[in-house]
Structures are given as C-alpha cells and as structure tokens.
Write a protein that binds this DNA or RNA. Structure first.
Lengths: 383, 383
DNA sequence: CTGTTAGCGCATTCAA
DNA sequence: TTGAATGCGCTAACAG
C-alpha cells in the first residue's frame, strides 16, 4: 500500500531510573551450587529437592533449608544445562510460513495452548514462504535440540514424495524437497519427532483437515437450498488444499446428480483475484445461483464483484460460501457463510501426536470441518 | 459460535513406510567429538573449524578433513551446550497475549524477521490474557536462559509503576504487578535484557506507538474535509492505548478550535459493542458527520450500525475512521479508512533495541502511525 | 597451527 | 538419607 516512511523518535526518560542489583556473578544467573552452598548441603541434595528426580527422599530439615535458599536467591534452574545433563529437552519447534497469517496464527495458538499443558516451550520459525528457509530452520531447530518439530505449511502437489535415502553417499541433495526429507530423516535419527499439519507427501505423522468433505458439505447445503447452477472459484492448481477442496466439491456434485461440467474459475488467493474471477464466472454462466469460493480472502472479493461490479444481490440472487472462516468473515457484508477449519485444534493435535510414542507407520489424524451458515447464503431464487 | 463437536479420525497408511537409519547413538545426535575422531584431529581443532572461534587459524589439511567428516556425519552443533560453554544464548523470548490476534501476530512477525537477520531463534509464549501466566512465562524464559525478552501486551493504566525493590527482605510480593517487576529485575540482574512494546509503566526500554498523534492526525484530516461535528467511539477506559488515542483526539480538536465537549461513547473492543455505541452516539447527536473509532473491530460494528440500523450512508452522510489497520479493514464495505500502526516495525525495533548495549536510563522509541484513507471517509455533507 | 585441560550447570550413579 | 565423583557437548585458555 502506501510507502510513506515511518519516522522513529528516541525519547529518554529520567524518571524510573533502574536500580540494578547485580547479586550474582555478572556472568549468568544463580546456580544450583550457590543454592547448595547457602543451604549448607551438597549439590546432589539441592538437585534432588529442587528437581523432583530422587523424589521425596530428602530429610525435612535439609529440604526446608534448600527451599529457603532457593527462594531467597531467586533461583531458577538452567533449562539448557538440565537438558544437556539428562539429554531431553523441554522445547518443541514450530515452523510456519508466516505467524501474521491468521491461518498459522491459529495453528500456533493451538500448539502453544497444548504446550502449556505439557509444560513445554515453543520455538517458532517463520519461513515467509521461502522454501530454502524451511530446511535452514529445520537445521536450526535440530541444533537447538528441540524435542520435536511441527511442520505447518500448505504443501504443493509438485513436491517430490519418497526417496528419503536414495541420494548417493557423498552427493549433495539437489531438489529442495530432497534436502527437506534428509534433514527430517537426520532429526528423526537423533530421536526427534516430526509431525506435519496439512498433507505434505512426506512419510510423516500428519494432522490433516477434511478439505474434501468440507467442500462436499458446502455443496450439499447449497443443493438443499435449491441451488442447481453452482460455480466454483478456486485458487492455484498446485496447492494440495485447493486440489482436495475442488475434488470434494466435484464428487459431491456428481453424487447429487448435477449436470457435468460445473464451471470453475481460478485465481490467486487474493481479494482482487476473487473479484475478477467472480465477474468472469457470472459473465460466462449468467444462470449461476450459488458460488463456492475456496478461500475467504477470495470470497471477500467475490462478494464485492457480485454486488458492486455486477449489481447482483447476495444472497437474494446469488449465494456465496467461503472457506476457512477467517476472522473477518463475520465482518463482511453480508456476513460470509464459510467452511470453518479447526486450526487451533490442529495445532493441539499435532502437539499431542508429537508426545505420543512413535508408531510403526506414519499416522494421520483427520479433523472435520464445520459449515458455518451466515447471511451470504439463502434459498435459490424462485423457491 | 456454533459448538458442534469436531470428530477426529485416525488413518494409518501403509505406503511410505519410514526407513530409519539410527546412525548415531540412539541418545542424542552426532557430537563434535565424533567428528573430531573421524577426522583424526582433536576436539579443539574440530571446534575451531566448525565454529569460527579461533577463526581462520587452522591448516587447510585439517580444515578440509574436519569439514568432510562433519558433512558426512550430518553434524549439527548442539546449541544449548554451546550456550552453556560460552554462557551466551542465541535465543530470545517473546511474550504476547495471543499469537492468533493479528495485532500480536504482526509484532511477532516483525520480531522474527529481525531475529533471522541476527541468526537468533525466537521462543514465544502466549498468556491468553491471564496476567498470572505472564509472570510464569517470564520465569520459564529466564530458565531457558534466553538472551533477552520482548514483552508485548497492551498495558492497563492501573498497573503499579515503580517499586522494583521496595518489598521487604523475605516478603512475598503481593500484587501481580510487583511480581512482574521482581521477575524482570531478576532477569536483568542476570544480564538479560527486556524491552516492552507499548507503554507498560515499568522502567523498561520500550517501543511505543504514537497513538496520540495518530488520533490527532485522523481528527485533522476529518476537519479538513469539512467535518465540524465529530464523535468518538472509544474502548475500555483502563487501557493505556485507548487513553492515549482519546487524549490525542481531544487535544487536536481543541487546537482546531472545536466546540468543547465532543461526544464520546465507550464500548468493549468488539464489533457488537461498536455497533451499539454508534447507534447511541448518533441518536444522542444526530448532527454528527464523522466518527473516529478507536479500533477496527469496533469500526466494523460502527459501519454496520450506521448503515443497517440507522440507514445512514457512509461516507455520504457520515464518515468513519478506524484504528489499527487490521487485515480486514480493506474488506469492509465501504473499505475502512484507518490509522495504521507500524506493528511489524515495532517488533523489529524491539529486537534491535534488545541487541544494543544497555543505556543508563530506559529509552523509548516512538514509532509514527500512518493515516490510510479509504472509502469510508468523504467530505462533510453539503460541501 | 594444534592438542590438553579445565570448566559451564546440572543429573545421576555409586558409596557411605 | 546424604555426599563425592563422573559425564552431557562444547568453548577457551594454556601449552607446545
């Protein structure tokens, strides 16, 4: 949008000057050793009371002294050191395309919620859709020795599927898909767990969304409202989610006995794209009474195109159903009916899957979508 | 919304069975030691070539052998161990209310972008607005020995300000504000850095948004369009952001010589709240030709209230300006004019501030907002 | 230029 | 029940 430079001002306030109390060595924090010393016990004993390993086998006397010492020193255990010693980390990694995208934001929120219940911390990496970064972050997360990694990102159908160990000995992997697979294999070989959200074609445990049945459900709902002339506004052909949704819609139509050849207009996942696609669709097929749009962003554009460009009333003349239930769907006018994806749930399930013992073959958890009917859908005209 | 239970299906696929290659000890990963051994050099040498400490002072011979060994073993350094040894971590913490909220999502995205440039990883914690969790996560992040922490969260004006070290020796802190301050002090005492995004009243380095001047700018723009009867729909009185925005608007009005007593309607930050507030506002002051709404969510409601409940045309009869430039602002009808907050920028600046050497007194970086004019604003009627 | 050694903060045997 | 000793993977002096 506008490119006006933002200014930045420095303000230094004099009030509230900080009073630092460099209690411990300036180096790090308080150590268990220091706590033990203050309590007059051995390191081992302090460790036992503070980190329930040799659980309750410490005398009340010493136990109390250690606890007091820890409190007064504001001791907090050193998680990385702990992880090193017991070789098991308490952090999991999450790789997304973009945290600012509500789709991934919801996934992240779900994962973090579940993480909290398990007392795990989450390290997030955003690739901003650069596929090279995905491999790089996988390495970084591996370097951090995270316990497990969630790979959230809509896959493309073009990705190479198998061949985890086909590369020759000293050969560098070529395709980015290969590299990814190798990195994943290495992480798993070290005992790390990986799960994907959304189909990735890699042999991973995955949490998938029921895109097919979601689209099918929307189609059936429209059919029941009397719509017989449906159209679809789809996104890029190489996205697996798009492919699945489209497939689901087509199958449902066929099952309902619709005339073959439902019109489909493609566009990118943008509002403008949706708007143009809607215009094309209705110009080519003026009889259309309902359109299924494969993303809410495009649906926002479809609503605009229908009402403003073509002067059609929604839902009186044309009904619209979107996909995703983005936060703004309810703010559109009319409020958008849409297929809600259980994104938070997906994040939670992914984390849960991560913590379960590893199965022999990759598992897939498929989460159902939910059709949310709002003001943008109504009975077919003349019914 | 609807509470239909989501089903979950397990599907086990037989294709793509994974071929694990437990190369290293099942325990952890490949160690530097192993690399050194394979290369036939000492641990120190391997360390030098792989982690540029004693930079380029290794012979080409050995260097090559080590690099080959590392590659063939798929060696990745153990970051926590490294951090322990050199006592300096490469991860920063970020505490937000909710990652799924676009406001925080944008901040997080900015921070992560900057982190990437510095080769840092970001550990995120979401408090889901439970203030107790904030303190808890601060502790967890401290336990993880992160290098620094970004505290992003709209503060409330009611928070206790100073008193970092006022509590008596053995006394437990009472208010949650005190606890927070103590936790922060402890982290800083260990050499950690903390910066806040948004005013928090704690004596921290902070990145602030120019809420006052943003609101003032919006008011002036409306004034120039001929509007003389302005109204404000504000949010909860105890949020500092709301207070600042309101203050900015009032000052601007006064400076322009507006009649005292601009009507202000309060509501919570929701769409419904905004809708109701708009109706109240225009019922009480029917002459109003422009309304400044202190958040986009409420603005969406105001748009609905004005047009649907009151039958007023926007912007022909009433102009509307929101605040935040939420992603959906452009999807509203009419597209919403709004004051854009430089959220990503704030995240970046925060990280940058974190890496700068600590100053004697807390610094504040104030980021300017930007007025984005779209279709919801027009000249005052009759001009 | 290269190797040896001594920690970093903690968990965990193994004795006492 | 408690303490001393060893090692987790790595860096950083310190010697050659």
């Amino acid at each position: 949008m506008a490119g006006k430079a933002l200014s930045k001002r420095y303000v230094t306030r004099m009030e509230n000057r900080r009073s630092r109390t460099r209690s411990a060595r300036a180096g790090g924090g308080v150590t268990l050793q220091q706590v033990a010393q203050l309590a007059g016990v051995s390191l081992a004993t302090a460790s036992r009371v503070l980190h329930g390993s040799g659980a309750r086998n410490v005398g009340d006397q010493l136990r109390g002294r250690v606890e007091d010492a820890a409190r007064s020193l504001r001791y907090v255990s050193n998680a990385p050191a702990q992880a090193l010693a017991r070789s098991s980390s308490s952090v999991v990694g999450l790789i997304v395309h973009d945290v600012a995208d509500p789709y991934f934001g919801a996934i992240a929120a779900g994962a973090m919620q579940a993480a909290r219940e398990q007392e795990l911390m989450v390290m997030i990496a955003a690739t901003f859709r650069e596929s090279g970064l995905e491999v790089q972050y996988l390495r970084s997360l591996r370097a951090q020795r995270v316990r497990a990694i969630i790979l959230a990102g809509s896959g493309t159908t073009g990705i190479s599927t198998g061949g985890i160990s086909t590369a020759g000995a000293g050969t560098d992997p070529v395709g980015t898909g290969e590299e990814l697979a190798e990195e994943i294999a290495a992480f798993e070989a070290e005992g790390g767990r990986v799960v994907a959200i959304g189909e990735r074609g890699l042999g991973l445990d995955t949490v998938a969304m029921a895109n097919r049945s979601g689209a099918a459900g929307a189609v059936r709902a429209l059919w029941e409202l009397g719509h017989r002339e449906l159209g679809v506004v789809a996104g890029p052909a190489d996205l697996t989610t798009v492919a699945h949704r489209l497939d689901g819609a087509r199958r449902a139509l066929r099952a309902l006995g619709a005339a073959a050849g439902t019109p489909v207009e493609r566009s990118d996942f943008s509002q403008e794209g949706g708007r143009a696609a809607a215009v094309r669709l209705l110009r080519a097929h003026p009889g259309t009474t309902a359109v299924l749009v494969l993303s809410d962003a495009m649906a926002a554009g479809v609503l605009a195109g229908l009402q403003e460009d073509l002067g059609l009333a929604v839902p009186e003349q044309v009904s619209v159903v979107g996909f995703n239930d983005a936060p703004y769907a309810v703010n559109l006018r009319p409020a958008l009916s849409t297929v809600r994806l259980p994104l938070e749930r997906a994040g939670q399930e992914a984390l849960r899957l991560l913590l379960e013992p590893e199965a022999d073959e990759p598992r897939t958890v498929e989460l159902d979508t939910e059709l949310v009917l709002r003001a943008s859908t109504g009975p077919a005209p003349g019914r």
